[in-house]
Simulated assay, not measured.
Amino acid sequence: MKVTALTEQAGQPVLRFRDGHTALADLVVFADGRSSTGRRLLDPDRTLRYAGYVAHRGIADITPQPGLRDFLRLQPCPGVQFNLAPVPGGCDWTFYLNCTSSEYTQRFGADPTRRVFALPRHVSPAARAHVDTHADLLLPVAHAAIVHATTTRMAVPVLDITAPQRMVWPIGTGHAVLLGDALAPVRPHTARGANNGIEQAAGLAAALTQHRKYAADLTAALHGWQRRHLPAAVAAVHRGPVIGNQLGLGTHQPAQ
């Protein structure tokens, strides 16, 4: 069921759904990813911005090379990064390549800020050929062969967003919060995407335990949670474009 609005009724947050029904709550938690409805409702000025490059991904049903026991990273030239790791049954790879917004739309059928994850059915023959060609041009033969051997592929446009200034919003006497990618998606090179979400979720659970089990004031507990976790989220948002620029990936624009 898709949420369409968040309002207040008799001091409580009210979620309104597409089918017309509503639900009252004391606390609303939005952990709904990069295209977050919660962010659009609570913090609408912070919209996604395409960073100018794409993470092409796949898992090849191929035996890893002898000696490939862990993560391998290749950076053959500025604007390119190739990551490879053995997984059960094959090799998982990610190939970062620069790409304009119009090129992304042509290859994957929608603007990168709309199609924030290109499923296998969205990967056009042109997109596949683009990756195969660059694998042949830029990667060692053995690694290019892994790319060619991958039948099922996906793609993720790298996105930026203005750093958040808060995680908690009052809704009447209740509250709504954003966490994880709903709060602030970050570039994968920061290694903070999943980590931010996990840490924020664990911290929120601890804050709610303080409220439910020990009668701590909910507003104070939530703002304490925000003070502990917001700085790391902001730092990761700012760090992503710096790393991308160092790698020659995308269009360098300092995080706002």
Rank of each mutant, 00 (worst) to 15 (best):
V116G: 02
R18T: 14
D61F: 04
R187I: 05
H134K: 10
A110N: 11
H148F: 08
S35L: 03
G174E: 03
S101D: 12
I243A: 05
L48P: 02
G79V: 09
C99T: 09
L24A: 06
T151W: 14
A201R: 11
G89E: 08
A184D: 10
T7I: 00
L218Q: 02
A176D: 02
P64E: 07
D19N: 15
A144P: 04
A126Q: 13
P64R: 09
T251F: 05
P254C: 02
S36E: 01
G224R: 13
A205C: 12
L24E: 06
L247M: 14
G224E: 11
A215I: 04
T100H: 12
A182T: 05
R49N: 04
L138V: 03
F71V: 12
V242F: 09
A220V: 10
D43G: 02
R40Y: 07
A182E: 06
P188Y: 03
R228Q: 15
V234Q: 06
R228K: 15
A110D: 14
P231V: 10
E199C: 14
E103D: 11
Q65C: 08
P125D: 04
R16H: 13
A127D: 01
D160E: 09
D45E: 06
R49K: 08
A10I: 00
L138T: 02
P231W: 11
L247P: 04
F17H: 08
A144G: 06
